[in-house]
Amino acid sequence: MPLLNSSQRHRVGFSLNGHSVEGDAEPRVLLTDFLRHEIGATGTHVGCEHGVCGACTVTVDGMLTRACLTLAVQIEGCDVRTVEGLATAPDRLSILQAAFRRNHALQCGFCTAGILMSLDAFLREVPTPAEDQIRDLLSGHLCRCTGYTPIVRAALEAAAELASRQPAVQSHHV
């Protein structure tokens, strides 16, 4: 049970979107700031910094996680997934991302990274969701400009497309 001293930076190794990475952080550094400033992964956005807005939502070991309510030192050895890991290649969009684009489900894009991470995790558990399930999930995110209606539409469209392409999807949708 080593004590990590407050005034020192400590090495944190973890998996980010399937790749091993490491960086240094004082115990008080939040996962949001660690990802953005230390690792350089700026896809995860920082909003309210007290767990309400959902902009910083990522997954840690498969669990939906507010990165702003998580310490960098807590993710030692964990599997972290962020919005950068959704598309199969830099010039491609995932099925969910493409559905967002088609449906104008993003405007300024500030809340989008977190919403995509929530939906990506949720649609794997609930492949054929009802609209009210999507709306319940989205209650954990604040969007202040696009409006939720196109986001719900994009989510349902992506779910239908993913369900119809299940075998192909499973192989890259990991």
Partner: peptide
């Protein structure tokens, strides 16, 4: 809004905590 500085310990048993 960032936390003030603190030390951090990950306990491996309730007794340690």
């Amino acid at each position: 809004m960032k936390p003030a500085a603190f030390d951090y310990v990950r306990a491996s048993s309730a007794e340690e905590a």
